[in-house]
Design a protein around this nucleic acid. Structure first.
Lengths: 119, 119
DNA sequence: ATGACATTCAACCGTTTGGTTGACGATTGC
DNA sequence: GCAATCGTCAACCAAACGGTTGAATGTCAT
């Protein structure tokens, strides 16, 4: 009933989840470590991870008592292609991405709830 | 409190709204005409359009008693760039987009709720 | 075996979402 | 002026969302 685009865009619409994806870009992480920088409960993070996994954006692999989360960026392809169709966006601009990422991460401290530009 | 990425991704997460954007890709349209192919009320469409406008994805201009809706694809740039940062997606594939669009539009009849390809 | 740790489950709560209906303000055409 | 048309507003509803807490499960270390 819901297509892939639905759940991918929906998964990406939450800032906590986007921040998690950005963290996983640097390295695979255990659930507890993913949760560490955020001011919300571990259970809440667990739910976010479930949603990201449902959307295919991450994979979770249990090793011992630890569950490792791994970015699965291919899941973004569909959504990305869909958007590309709407404009002549110039080719991948990694610098612009870097800047966006910084905004998302909020420069170094707790980035779950605070900071955002005006607008 | 919510940043641009939040509202853009959130706006894109609804299939009705994506279908509306796809329609506007072909031409500017009046609200009533936008609503025509959908099985939901005009008021519901009006709300969807408000959300798309809030996200900057469309602009609405009143001319006489008719409000014209126009695609504003630049609003996707930020979201697109954000996603691009996650993978080496190959450059814009318009053919793939065309295929996606067809899936979204569902070839001719009510396209609000049904059909989706596997994947 | 026992206890500590890692993660999820279940129940709950307040808010948001996508939809409805009916009334309403503008604008047009006769 | 009057009726029809265009679009939004307001009130309402059920379902989904993002969060909480506390109990349950599985695994490691001693």
């Amino acid at each position: 009933m819901v297509n892939t685009l639905d759940i991918v865009f929906s998964a990406l619409s939450d800032p906590t989840r986007r921040a998690i994806l950005a963290m996983l870009l640097e390295d695979d992480m255990a659930v507890t470590d993913v949760a560490e920088p955020f001011a919300i409960s571990l259970a809440a993070i667990s739910k976010h991870l479930a949603i990201l996994a449902e959307a295919g954006l991450i994979a979770r692999e249990k090793r011992g008592r630890v569950i490792w989360c791994k970015l699965e960026p291919d899941a973004m392809r569909g959504a990305s292609v869909w958007m590309q169709g709407f404009g002549a966006f110039e080719p991948v601009d990694l610098d612009a991405f870097e800047r966006f990422l910084e905004t998302e991460l909020g420069e170094g401290d707790d980035f779950s709830q605070k900071n955002r530009g005006p607008e």
